[in-house]
Design a binder for these strands. Structure first.
Length: 676
DNA sequence: AGCACGCCGACT
DNA sequence: GTCGGCGTGCTC
């Protein structure tokens, strides 16, 4: 409706699905200067005195059109906004559109995404930033003219691993790529060693920066961040990099966030939340190792960084690069439908992978240590000259025990948790509650003695230390983090993903416990294992043997040929046959029988949608599974489910005696990992 | 969430 | 008549 004055369209910062839309308010004349899109505002909600915080999304009308023609959909009297929290425009229009789209896709709330995208406000940091910004407006505008000399020197070797027209040119042309990383290491002048992949990401970002555009570099964890940071320290202009790290203290995090709002191209490096950074003139989104589970957001609406990157690429019209040593089925699907273009290094050099069959191992000592003779000899020779990596499945000493007589796994008498040994001499204890099991008795038989069934890093280190007397033994796992390593001889026992990077690479790599890693019951095991193994294999030095123990078949072949796409293609083919994701999209709908029935009633009749169930899960809850196609069908499914969520949330009431309103019974989850 | 509105049973 | 129980719906 047409009315006088300025109108503010505001998103209320609330997790309630009923409030997940824009509310219109009038802007009092005295706030007209401050009330710009993106600022945090305080607005009245319903009764006077109740104030909610929100984000100003849009201003309708102009101050000088009096009586103005401001278009507002809302018919009724508008309340005035209470105040503007600060002049910092923290929610840029681009990030708002991204949040809206990413929330709509899985029937979620925009404010849930914005909570990831906009860090908590830090008043002092913000004031300092605002002061610096007004100073910059008045005076000179600092750019990134001061390119370091190191960057010029490094420029000579830019992209030597890929044909320029297969990587650099498409990235500057804003194309979408799936890039096979070079499985090798590069020594830096400061003595550190990083994966070539990290240098590739840094080089692409620097080239994008030189073209006047920002980059967002998304990596799973801080160890990966450190590698890319090391490459950027060398290549990128001073002051052009913002690091958005979940481990940062809040003030640092907010400072880095605000730096992205400065209207100049930047390089933003961080974990999955970096994909939401408000980068100015975005030219590139690059994501490393999209199969790493750290890329998947554990908070509702559970948007995976890969999906966020895909949506943002479409909105920003920038380049998109998925880089990795392995290939997820999701990316394989995008390659097969032609959405991503595959890029391979110019030379196909890869680690020398030797699959070994373990079943026929005759050597008793080797068998006890889970190492076949060939691997044993390779390690023995290699450890004379430099570090040797032994990758195992579990941290700790002996994380799993069983009854000596009946072989059933030993459980805690208090909480049913698994029993393990913290060290060779310690009393067995529960890994969940910590209770000591000094006087343990088997519940299945009369047995009173335990035997070790799985070996962790600790026990493996002990055994290998005995087998290789004189060798330095180093443990690297969650409890003993270690990132960098020298070139001196050592046996490095590491859990998957925790392998330190040695100068010059490992002289040999033993991948143990393959059988156990594969025993996990999940649709993803094959891909996960190949990812763990190839990421470790990429740390091999020139010509070093990588020995895959006890695994054969397609997995061993894919690693041996260094062709992860072959496995991903097979897997995707199977999922198509089964109509499993990512061949189709899925959502689970959980709640009371009536709520679930009400939510899916309109879906079943839709084209390209089928509803499985509902079946009872935990009394009195039932779960239905909705399978549907990509594209507009998915949008329709999400819209209908969101409407059901809103209906359900409005209807939930607090029972008479209870202090709290019960949680909504209707839960909708898209791409539910539990379904696989 | 938190509050107003409204539609039925017991009350001064 | 009307006070107030709580089920229902809305918040610009």
């Amino acid at each position: 409706m047409t009315r006088a004055g300025l109108v503010a369209r505001v998103l209320i910062d609330s997790p309630l699905p009923q409030l997940d839309h824009l509310f219109d308010y009038s802007i009092p004349a005295e706030l007209a200067d401050l009330a710009r899109p993106g600022v945090r505002v305080k607005v009245p909600l319903r009764s006077a005195g109740r104030v909610a915080e929100g984000y100003l999304i849009e201003v309708l009308g102009t101050p000088d059109t009096t009586p103005a023609a401001a278009e507002s959909e809302f018919v009724g009297a508008l309340s005035p906004i209470d105040g503007v929290v600060s002049a910092a425009p923290v929610l840029t229009p681009a990030v708002w559109l991204l949040a809206r789209r990413l929330a709509d896709r899985p029937a979620g709330n925009a404010s849930d995404i914005i909570r990831l995208a906009v860090p908590p406000r830090q008043v002092r940091v913000e004031k300092a930033w605002l002061a610096a910004r007004t100073a910059a407006d008045a005076g000179s505008v600092p750019g990134h003219a001061a390119t370091s000399a190191a960057a010029d020197a490094a420029a000579a070797t830019f992209f030597s691993d890929y044909p320029t027209d297969s990587l650099l040119v498409p990235v500057l042309g804003r194309q979408r790529l799936c890039v096979a990383a070079v499985p090798d290491l590069v020594p830096l002048p400061d003595g550190r060693t990083i994966g070539i992949w990290a240098q590739t990401m840094a080089e692409l970002a620097v080239a994008t920066l030189a073209a006047g555009r920002s980059s967002v570099l998304v990596v799973p964890d801080y160890r990966d961040q450190d590698q890319v940071q090391a490459a950027l320290d060398l290549l990128a202009p001073v002051g052009s990099v913002s690091r958005v790290d979940a481990r940062q203290p809040n003030p640092d995090r907010y400072r880095a966030f605000l730096a992205c709002l400065t209207p100049a191209p930047r390089i933003v490096l961080g974990n999955r939340s970096a994909v939401y950074a408000p980068a100015h003139e975005l030219g590139l989104i690059a994501l490393w190792d999209d199969g790493d589970p750290l890329h998947s957001e554990p908070l509702s609406p559970y948007v995976h960084a890969r999906d966020a990157a895909l949506v943002r690429q479409g909105q920003a019209d920038c380049a998109l690069v998925f880089l990795g040593h392995s290939r997820t089925v999701e990316v394989q699907r995008l390659v097969e439908i032609g959405w991503l273009t595959e890029v391979h290094p110019a030379r196909n050099r890869h680690p020398r992978v030797i699959p070994t069959d373990f079943q026929s191992e005759p050597d008793q000592q080797a068998r006890a240590a889970r190492i076949p003779t060939a691997a044993w000899l390779a390690a023995k020779e290699a450890v004379k000259h430099g570090p040797v990596l032994v990758q195992v499945a579990s941290p700790g000493y002996a994380p799993m025990l069983a009854c000596q007589s009946c072989k059933k796994s030993a459980r805690c008498t208090k909480c049913q948790g698994p029993l393990g040994l913290a060290s060779a001499t310690s009393t067995p204890s529960c890994r969940w509650c910590g209770a000591l099991a000094a006087d343990w008795a088997c519940v299945h038989c009369e047995g009173r003695s335990l035997r070790v069934v799985t070996l962790g890093t600790g026990r493996t280190a002990e055994e290998l230390g005995r087998a290789f007397p004189g060798a330095r033994v180093i443990i690297a796992d969650g409890e003993h983090p270690l990132q960098q390593l020298g070139a001196e001889p050592a046996l490095v026992i590491a859990t998957r993903g925790a392998e330190p990077i040695p100068t010059g690479g490992y002289r040999a790599i033993l991948l143990l416990d393959g059988e156990r890693m594969l025993a996990r019951e999940s649709l993803r095991v094959g891909g996960d294992c190949l990812r763990w193994w190839s990421n470790a294999a990429a740390l091999a030095g020139p010509g070093a043997p990588v020995i895959l123990v006890g695994v054969g078949g397609v997995l061993a072949r894919a690693l041996n040929n260094w062709q992860p796409e072959a496995l991903a293609a097979d897997e995707l083919h199977d999922r198509r046959q089964l109509r499993f994701p990512p061949a189709v999209r899925v959502a689970s709908v959980t709640g009371t029988a009536a709520d679930v029935a009400g939510a899916v009633v309109d879906l079943a009749a839709m084209d390209g949608v089928d509803v499985l169930g509902p079946v009872t899960t935990e009394e009195p809850l039932v779960r239905a599974i909705v399978r549907f196609a990509y594209g507009s069908t998915g949008d329709d499914v999400a819209r209908l489910l969101k409407a059901a969520i809103v209906r359900n949330a409005a209807r939930r009431r607090r029972p008479k005696g209870a202090a709290f309103r019960p949680a909504p019974t209707l839960k909708v989850r898209f791409d539910d990992p539990e379904l696989l």
